[in-house]
């Protein structure tokens, strides 16, 4: 046949997931292509942070735990100076990027997966499943989230993995709602009906017909979840409830605060992590909202 690059696919589950991932990548690159001016800046920033996080070891001038003389202002050897223990702040910041991003991504990933599954199932099956799952969602929505995380963090003294997991488990509700409402629309499309009447299984329909057409509402939600997880992690760390063995951006501010950085006006200590948090959140929000706008537009166009 004339399609050279098309792969034959059968109905096996592994293939379904494979093709879903493919279309996920497809929708991601499609999304990037559609980004506009300000959101391109967002994307550039985002990629920069990603590179820094992944190659922290190569980018950072020193080991973040290495000690030099303390309270050095920015200079040639230490572009952002050193802190009270004499750690190089630029290196701390670079390794902190990795920690913060892992928490952000981890939490967002959890939230997106749980939210998508709940949303897809309740939207697709409707009826009792829908009522139960949406009831559950409402319960989770009523939980005051940040206070709960703080309380749990205080009691459990969790590692930063736990924090990520915890946030993920609490933050899926809005994703679930959005996915559900989109799923409700998609399942009314005649291609879903026709797949049903042709005799395809529910799994096949959910993975190949519904999910790919819901992905574009999941993506912006995922991005925005990263941003809010990052902020929450920073808040918790700032309150001193974070994982002290992992220096995230929030933890750096916390250290600066508790060890006199603010009082003594060592701006090079607390300003950079604050700036990083702001810039990263900005980059994510820029991308996410432009994706949401586009989704809105395409819906109006329909």
């Amino acid at each position: 046949m004339s399609c050279k690059n098309s792969r034959r696919r059968n109905a096996g589950l592994s293939n379904m997931i494979g093709s879903t991932i493919r279309s996920m990548i497809g929708s991601m690159s499609e999304s990037i292509g559609a980004l506009s001016g300000s959101s391109k800046i967002g994307l550039a920033l985002f990629v920069l942070f990603l590179i820094v996080a992944v190659f922290a070891g190569a980018v950072a001038p020193y080991d973040p735990w290495l000690r030099f003389s303390p309270f050095m202002p920015p200079g040639f050897a230490h572009p952002l100076g050193t802190n009270d223990l004499g750690n190089d702040i630029l290196s701390e910041l670079i390794f902190g990027t990795r920690v913060s991003l892992i928490v952000g991504f981890g939490a967002a990933f959890m939230a997106t997966i749980i939210g998508s599954v709940v949303g897809l199932l309740s939207g697709y099956f409707r009826g009792l499943a829908d009522e139960l799952l949406m009831g559950l969602t409402d319960v989770f929505l009523m939980i005051p989230q940040i206070p709960l995380i703080i309380v749990l963090a205080a009691f459990l003294r969790p590692s930063f993995w736990m924090t990520a997991l915890l946030m993920g488990c609490l933050w899926w509700t809005s994703t679930a709602r959005v996915v559900r409402s989109r799923t409700l629309q998609v399942r009314e499309m005649s291609y879903v009906e026709s797949a049903t009447s042709l005799g395809f299984s529910h799994a096949h329909i959910i993975f190949t017909d519904v999910l790919p057409n819901v992905l574009h509402v999941i993506m912006p939600k995922f991005l925005l979840a990263i941003a809010s997880a990052l902020i929450a992690e920073a808040s918790i760390s700032f309150l001193g409830l974070g994982d002290p063995t992992m220096k995230s951006w929030g933890m750096m501010i916390n250290f600066a605060f508790t060890r006199g950085g603010f009082i003594n006006g060592y701006w090079w200590w607390y300003l950079p992590p604050g700036l990083c948090i702001t810039l990263f959140v900005l980059s994510v929000v820029l991308m996410g909202s432009s994706l949401e706008d586009r989704e809105e537009e395409s819906r109006v166009a329909q």
Binding site: S6, S23, Y191, S194, P212
Partner: peptide, 25 residues
């Protein structure tokens, strides 16, 4: 066979895949 021509095929599957999946079924 349904009414709306645009809606009766999944917009994210190529025509070939839409046909092949039925053969797989």
């Amino acid at each position: 066979v349904f009414q709306d021509p645009e809606g009766s095929l999944n917009p994210r599957k190529s025509i070939e895949r839409s046909i092949n999946e039925v053969l797989g079924l």
